[in-house]
Write a protein that binds this DNA or RNA. Sequence first.
DNA 1: TACCACGATCATTGA
DNA 2: ATCAATGATCGTGGT
Length: 117
Amino acid sequence: MCKLKPLLNKWLEEADSSTGSPTSIDKIAAQGRKRKKRTSIEVSVKGVLETHFLKCPKPAAQEISSLADSLQLEKEVVRVWFCNRRQKEKRMTPPGDPQPHEGFPHNVKADPSCHDL
DNA sequence: TACCACGATCATTGA
DNA sequence: ATCAATGATCGTGGT
């Protein structure tokens, strides 16, 4: 059901745009997805995000909301930013940077509750 | 059932 | 015009 919600939303958006073109439905069937323009994040904002990322690479939705509010951004944008940040880190770190440090398979506490705020 | 994160991938922007 | 960086989206799996 919740999966249909976004789908229905797209339909409604298109329906609103159907300025006399009922055939627009085929477009929705295709993908009816309007990619938001590249939210150009200001350098200052990036700095704040990076700082938070260092503190918590995986903040809960609650932290994201707070952060987004502080930066005057959309939760989605902040969430996506964190996701991309994590991915990028992995993309660069594994190769040519094995992080020479013993004591590897010792970690047992994942510490999912990074309530550090 | 609803939500989150990750991987891959697309698409846009800036150099 | 082309490439690189990076945000936005889709699909999948886990809780």
